[in-house]
Structure formats: structure tokens, C-alpha cells
Amino acid sequence: MLAFGIDSPDEMLKNTQQEQRAQHLGSQLRCLVCQNESIEDSSADLAKDLRKVVRQRIVAGDTDSQVMEWMVDHYGNFIRLKPPFTFTTALLWFMPVLALGIGCIIAFVTLRKRKHIEAEALSKEEQKRLSELMKE
């Protein structure tokens, strides 16, 4: 876990275990005003403020899920870089399985069918030969 945005040592917690938790949490939280950067990665002011809040809450004894809840409460699901599984995000989360499934089905069906076509094509050729033989 790396905190690229932190630009001063006094932002970090003295307790390394707590600091690690804070960095892990921060990497899951979006810096709202920047694009697709986590608050740990961003040097924006708001990201700095949010980093501070995460650390304050951890020191105050919040669990990881409580900190996350606090953030979602204040900023909505927009702040989560990993969206929660809901009805709206179902397609997003099912996409890997869906794409894999569709791919496998298409491959399976076409490959099976191909043998069938091949068999037909061969029999036509045989028929041709047969008719030629008949002519002779």
C-alpha cells in the first residue's frame, strides 16, 4: 500500500498499524474533485482534509466499516472507488461472469456445429463423385 499524495510526515499517524489501516481505507475512497484518484494518491486540498478525517476517526476508535459508513453517509456511494453491489451495479459486478459465460457458450455451440457442417460438406462431395461415376 502506498500513499502517494501525502506530502508531509505530520499527516501520518505515529502508530504504524493504524496508519496502514488509514492508507488502505484511503485507497478505496475517491478524491471527489479529482478523477479516479484515491484520496491517498491525490494532492488536492479536499483529499488532504479527507485523509485527516479518516485518521481522526481511526484514532477515535472507529472500525474500518464504520469509517466507510461515515464517508458514504456524508458523500454518498460516489466516494467509493469500488461501488457496492446493488441493483444498479449488478451488471457491472456480473460482467466478468457474464462475458466469460457468453464467450464459452458461443465457442461451444459454434465448434460443435462446425463438425456438423463439415460432415454435410463431405457428403455433398461424395455425392458429386458418385454422380460423376454414374455418368461414366
Binding site: 484515491s38 460516489f78 472507488l81 469500488k82 451488471l91 457491472l92
Partner: peptide, 30 residues
């Protein structure tokens, strides 16, 4: 499949916003 996941992840936020106005983020952890 990987391409489909990357494409969906990239386009999901604007399409969700277009359809029901919700804003969400899809980033590195996803």
C-alpha cells in the same frame, strides 16, 4: 472478457448517470 470488464467499468458511471441520475465511481479497487 477482460476487455468487456474494463469497458463496462469505464463506461458504467456516465451511463448510470444518464439513465437514473445516480453518480458513482469505478476505480482501482474494482
Amino acid at each position: 472478457t477482460m476487455a468487456a470488464v474494463v469497458l463496462t467499468g469505464t463506461l458504467y458511471p456516465p451511463f448510470v448517470q444518464l439513465i437514473n441520475g445516480q453518480t458513482l465511481s469505478v476505480g482501482k479497487p474494482f
